[in-house]
Computed example of a mutant assay.
Amino acid sequence: MKRRDRKLELFLLVLLVLRFSVFLPHVFWIYIISTGITTYFAIKLVWPERIAFHLEIPSRSHLWIWGGALGVAAAGANIWIRWEFHGVAPVLDQGWYLQIIFLPIIQFFVAATAEEPFFRGLLWGYLKRQGRPDWVILVVQALLFFVCHAYYARPGLYANWGSTLFMGFVFGIAAWKTRSILPSMIAHALVNGLTQAFTSSLK
């Protein structure tokens, strides 16, 4: 078990470094390949204990409530935060209805599938096995989620970084209450996709 824990800790570290390098978000193909490979092997490593790592399939009601409803509400809050503090105005330009449909789908397979297995799955399960209570893990994963988006910490993007901390708690609560990362992945995709669709121009 100790050897397994060391392997898991190493995979978490590799995933963290690769996924959230300041440079990788700007090199899309490296971003996708690196996160895909490390996420696959990390999940494979813990799959026999998938319940502890929030990798179970939730009920349909949990998907609707903690994934869909919470995701739409959090997206609205995120849009307001950026509008109020970042100077980004909600805009419905040509083809907005297609953006509302397709951008969350794209974000599900880009951001959600890379970040949720790590923060709300692997990291949560690892800390749980170390004996940490859930409320402490909720705070730790949200803070780490915030810090790892350090590429937002520059003029013009501070609101993005600030809302990331709030979303870390939102996604963490969704995974905690349902014991699954699928609702948090849906919420994550809705937040990213709808925010991207509705905040596409500057005031």
Rank of each mutant, 00 (worst) to 15 (best):
L165I: 11
W29K: 01
P48N: 05
Q99V: 06
Q99E: 12
I32Y: 08
D5G: 13
F109D: 04
G67P: 10
I57M: 15
L70A: 08
F108V: 05
V170R: 04
T39F: 07
L122P: 04
F23T: 12
L202E: 09
A142H: 07
V136E: 09
L45R: 05
I106C: 01
V191C: 10
L182M: 08
Q94R: 15
R19G: 13
H26I: 00
W80E: 05
E56T: 12
G131I: 05
A75H: 00
D5S: 06
G162Y: 14
A187E: 03
R50Q: 14
K7L: 12
Q196G: 10
H26W: 15
L16K: 09
G67C: 08
G193L: 06
H188R: 04
L190H: 08
P58R: 10
R50W: 04
D5Q: 14
R120T: 02
F20V: 03
L194K: 09
A187Y: 00
I79E: 03
I32T: 13
A75N: 06
P104A: 04
F108D: 01
G71N: 04
W47P: 00
P133F: 04
L18T: 13
I65G: 12
L182T: 04
L70M: 14
L98R: 06
V147W: 11
R4C: 06
A187K: 11
G68S: 07
V139H: 00
Q99T: 01
W66H: 10
D93W: 10
L15I: 00
S34M: 13
A52L: 15
L202D: 00
G131M: 06
L98C: 03
A77N: 09
Y152A: 03
R132W: 15
W176K: 11
N160Y: 04
L144K: 04
K7M: 02
K128P: 02
A197K: 06
V110Y: 01
A150M: 12
A89D: 02
V14C: 13
P25Q: 02
I186L: 14
D93A: 15
W135L: 02
Q99D: 15
T178N: 08
V91H: 15
S61M: 10
A142T: 06
G172M: 03
L103Y: 14
W176F: 11
L13E: 01
I65K: 15
W64N: 07
S184V: 08
T39C: 12
R132A: 14
H86T: 02
H62W: 15
F198A: 08
I101N: 09
F166W: 10
Y40V: 02
I181S: 11
F166E: 05
K2M: 11
W135V: 01
S21F: 05
L24K: 10
S61H: 11
L10Y: 01
G162C: 00
H26M: 10
L182E: 03
S59Q: 13
A111S: 10
P133K: 03
L157M: 13
W135H: 13
A159D: 08
E116S: 13
I37T: 13
V27E: 13
K203C: 03
A175R: 09
Q141E: 14
R179W: 00
E115H: 02
Q99P: 07
A75V: 08
E116Q: 14
